[in-house]
Design a protein around this nucleic acid. Structure first.
Length: 107
DNA sequence: ACTTTGACTTCGG
DNA sequence: TCCGAAGCCAAAG
């Protein structure tokens, strides 16, 4: 799966977001699908995936563990959030996959 | 083929 | 900064 592949590309000490991963994998807007993959997949660096703004989206113990694991990798936190400015991993340009331009028509 | 389901995102108040 | 509503989308059942 492309999403899994994208997740595995995140280097240690860096993090990414659901939305960014979805785009990198060619599924712009499918952030929720990334969550599904994380939940079901194995051997994934799940701790490196955060919500928009660098916020941990897990609940309870899992959230604590994620934070712990990230700090172990050298990821710095600023309050509840990760310092994205330094730690966000930028994917090497997602192949302008098909359905990109469709972004949000109105609201 | 149709409905449900998320570790989501963004906007407004 | 926090909360609710609406949007979004592929995978599972």
């Amino acid at each position: 799966m492309r999403i899994e592949a994208a997740i595995r590309r995140i280097p240690k000490g860096k993090v990414s977001t659901y939305g960014a991963i979805a785009r990198a994998a060619g599924f712009s807007g499918a952030a929720r699908q990334v969550a599904q993959v994380l939940h079901r997949g194995f051997h994934l660096p799940w701790q490196r995936v955060l919500g928009a703004g660098g916020e941990i989206k897990l609940g309870g113990d899992a959230a604590l563990e994620q934070r712990f694991r990230l700090e172990s990798e050298g990821v710095r936190f600023r309050g509840r959030r990760v310092d994205m400015k330094q730690c966000e991993y930028k994917f090497p340009l997602a192949r302008t996959t098909w359905k990109n331009s469709a972004r949000r028509a109105g609201h």
